[in-house]
Amino acid sequence: LPLEERVTHFRDMLLERGVSAFSTWEKELHKIVFDPRYLLLNSEERKQIFEQFVKTR
């Protein structure tokens, strides 16, 4: 999958899993780590997309 598509899937997962915009990566990790979409991005990309996600929520 192209990166753009993987990012979209990852963001959808964050929304569906009820990730809080007022929380930290560490506190929200347990909600998403077992979702197959979690593995679409490498660890650096995951954290970066998470940070963007919480800023725009």
Rank of each mutant, 00 (worst) to 15 (best):
residue 5 E to Y: 07
residue 46 R to P: 02
residue 26 E to K: 00
residue 32 I to A: 01
residue 25 W to M: 11
residue 42 N to Q: 13
residue 39 L to G: 15
residue 10 F to M: 02
residue 7 V to G: 08
residue 26 E to T: 06
residue 45 E to T: 06
residue 7 V to W: 05
residue 28 E to F: 02
residue 4 E to F: 09
residue 52 Q to V: 06
residue 56 T to L: 09
residue 42 N to M: 03
residue 53 F to S: 03
residue 44 E to G: 11
residue 29 L to I: 15
residue 37 R to F: 05
residue 20 S to Y: 01
residue 8 T to R: 04
residue 40 L to Y: 09
residue 11 R to K: 11
residue 45 E to A: 01
residue 13 M to W: 12
residue 9 H to L: 15
residue 36 P to T: 05
residue 16 E to S: 02
residue 18 G to R: 09
residue 22 F to T: 13
residue 15 L to G: 10
residue 7 V to L: 12
residue 36 P to S: 07
residue 7 V to E: 08
residue 13 M to H: 02
residue 3 L to N: 13
residue 33 V to K: 13
residue 27 K to V: 08
residue 55 K to A: 10
residue 31 K to W: 00
residue 33 V to F: 06
residue 20 S to M: 05
residue 56 T to C: 11
residue 21 A to Q: 10
residue 37 R to G: 03
residue 42 N to C: 07
residue 28 E to V: 03
residue 19 V to R: 00
residue 16 E to K: 14
residue 11 R to C: 06
residue 36 P to N: 10
residue 10 F to G: 03
residue 22 F to V: 07
residue 18 G to I: 10
residue 41 L to D: 00
residue 48 Q to E: 13
residue 14 L to D: 07
residue 12 D to T: 08
residue 46 R to N: 07
residue 48 Q to M: 13
residue 46 R to M: 03
residue 56 T to M: 06
residue 38 Y to P: 04
residue 46 R to H: 05
residue 55 K to Y: 03
residue 32 I to K: 01
residue 2 P to D: 15
residue 34 F to I: 14
residue 22 F to P: 07
residue 45 E to V: 01
residue 47 K to T: 02
residue 31 K to G: 04
residue 38 Y to A: 01
residue 32 I to N: 05
residue 44 E to K: 14
residue 34 F to S: 14
residue 31 K to M: 06
residue 41 L to E: 02
residue 41 L to W: 01
residue 5 E to N: 15
residue 34 F to P: 06
residue 20 S to T: 08
residue 31 K to S: 02
residue 17 R to K: 15
residue 29 L to S: 07
residue 50 F to N: 15
residue 21 A to I: 04
residue 33 V to A: 12
residue 3 L to W: 12
residue 50 F to G: 02
residue 2 P to S: 15
residue 5 E to R: 13
residue 43 S to T: 11
residue 50 F to A: 01
residue 19 V to A: 03
residue 25 W to S: 05
residue 21 A to R: 09
residue 47 K to V: 06
residue 9 H to I: 15
residue 26 E to G: 04
residue 32 I to R: 06
residue 15 L to E: 15
residue 17 R to L: 09
residue 50 F to E: 03
residue 54 V to C: 09
residue 5 E to Q: 09
residue 37 R to H: 00
residue 14 L to P: 10
residue 13 M to L: 08
residue 27 K to Y: 07
residue 47 K to L: 10
residue 27 K to N: 08
residue 18 G to V: 04
residue 19 V to Q: 04
residue 49 I to M: 05
residue 42 N to R: 11
residue 30 H to F: 00
residue 18 G to D: 10
residue 1 L to S: 12
residue 30 H to I: 07
residue 28 E to L: 07
residue 56 T to G: 09
residue 48 Q to P: 05
residue 24 T to S: 10
residue 19 V to I: 06
residue 37 R to V: 05
residue 40 L to K: 00
residue 2 P to R: 15
residue 47 K to C: 11
residue 50 F to C: 00
residue 52 Q to E: 14
residue 52 Q to T: 09
residue 38 Y to S: 01
residue 18 G to W: 02
residue 11 R to W: 09
residue 40 L to A: 06
residue 12 D to F: 04
residue 42 N to E: 13
residue 44 E to Q: 12
residue 5 E to C: 09
residue 1 L to W: 03
residue 51 E to R: 05
residue 9 H to D: 13
residue 17 R to N: 11
residue 27 K to L: 04
residue 14 L to C: 05
residue 21 A to T: 08
residue 40 L to R: 00
residue 54 V to H: 04
residue 32 I to T: 01
residue 44 E to D: 15
residue 17 R to V: 07
residue 8 T to Y: 05
residue 5 E to K: 06
residue 53 F to E: 00
residue 4 E to R: 01
residue 35 D to M: 03
residue 20 S to K: 05
residue 4 E to I: 09
residue 54 V to I: 11
residue 7 V to I: 14
residue 31 K to L: 02
residue 15 L to K: 11
residue 32 I to D: 01
residue 52 Q to F: 00
residue 3 L to H: 15
residue 26 E to M: 12
residue 24 T to G: 04
residue 11 R to I: 15
residue 48 Q to N: 15
residue 18 G to K: 15
residue 9 H to A: 13
residue 56 T to V: 07
residue 14 L to S: 01
residue 4 E to C: 07
residue 16 E to I: 00
residue 18 G to M: 00
residue 25 W to L: 02
residue 27 K to D: 14
residue 45 E to L: 12
residue 51 E to N: 11
residue 54 V to F: 12
residue 43 S to V: 09
residue 50 F to T: 00
residue 20 S to N: 15
residue 38 Y to E: 00
residue 13 M to T: 02
residue 11 R to S: 03
residue 9 H to R: 11
residue 17 R to A: 07
residue 9 H to N: 13
residue 46 R to L: 03
residue 24 T to E: 00
residue 41 L to S: 03
residue 27 K to C: 13
residue 29 L to E: 14
residue 30 H to W: 12
residue 18 G to H: 08
residue 6 R to N: 07
residue 27 K to W: 02
residue 21 A to Y: 07
residue 36 P to A: 08
residue 17 R to W: 02
residue 6 R to G: 01
residue 14 L to G: 02
residue 52 Q to P: 04
residue 51 E to C: 00
residue 16 E to C: 04
residue 50 F to S: 01
residue 24 T to L: 05
residue 8 T to W: 04
residue 15 L to F: 09
residue 32 I to M: 07
residue 43 S to W: 08
residue 16 E to F: 05
residue 3 L to F: 13
residue 16 E to H: 01
residue 12 D to Y: 12
residue 8 T to K: 07
residue 10 F to Q: 01
residue 45 E to H: 11
residue 51 E to I: 04
residue 31 K to C: 07
residue 18 G to F: 05
residue 25 W to G: 01
residue 16 E to W: 04
residue 26 E to Q: 09
residue 18 G to N: 12
residue 54 V to K: 08
residue 43 S to A: 13
residue 26 E to P: 10
residue 7 V to S: 09
residue 33 V to G: 02
residue 8 T to D: 07
residue 48 Q to Y: 08
residue 38 Y to N: 06
residue 14 L to A: 03
residue 2 P to Q: 15
residue 6 R to K: 07
residue 49 I to D: 15
residue 28 E to G: 03
residue 13 M to F: 02
residue 37 R to E: 00
residue 47 K to M: 11
residue 34 F to T: 14
residue 10 F to T: 03
residue 24 T to R: 03
residue 38 Y to R: 03
residue 37 R to W: 02
residue 7 V to F: 13
residue 1 L to A: 09
residue 54 V to W: 04
residue 49 I to W: 02
residue 17 R to S: 07
residue 30 H to N: 06
residue 5 E to D: 08
residue 1 L to I: 15
residue 21 A to M: 03
residue 33 V to R: 14
residue 51 E to L: 06
residue 16 E to V: 04
residue 17 R to Q: 10
residue 8 T to N: 10
residue 5 E to M: 10
residue 37 R to S: 03
residue 15 L to N: 11
residue 47 K to A: 08
residue 48 Q to G: 10
residue 54 V to S: 11
residue 10 F to S: 00
residue 21 A to S: 09
residue 20 S to H: 01
residue 22 F to C: 14
residue 25 W to A: 05
residue 29 L to G: 04
residue 20 S to W: 08
residue 56 T to D: 15
residue 32 I to H: 09
residue 10 F to N: 10
residue 4 E to P: 03
residue 15 L to I: 09
residue 11 R to M: 08
residue 55 K to Q: 11
residue 16 E to P: 02
residue 24 T to V: 05
residue 5 E to W: 03
residue 51 E to V: 03
residue 42 N to F: 04
residue 40 L to T: 00
residue 16 E to A: 07
residue 13 M to I: 04
residue 53 F to G: 08
residue 56 T to Y: 06
residue 52 Q to A: 08
residue 33 V to N: 09
residue 5 E to V: 08
residue 20 S to C: 11
residue 34 F to A: 13
residue 26 E to S: 04
residue 16 E to M: 07
residue 38 Y to V: 02
residue 32 I to P: 08
residue 8 T to C: 08
residue 28 E to R: 05
residue 7 V to R: 14
residue 23 S to T: 12
residue 27 K to A: 14
residue 6 R to S: 01
residue 56 T to W: 07
residue 29 L to W: 00
residue 24 T to K: 02
residue 47 K to S: 04
residue 2 P to I: 14
residue 43 S to E: 15
residue 4 E to Q: 06
residue 41 L to V: 10
residue 50 F to R: 03
residue 17 R to C: 11
residue 23 S to P: 13
residue 10 F to K: 01
residue 19 V to D: 04
residue 36 P to Y: 03
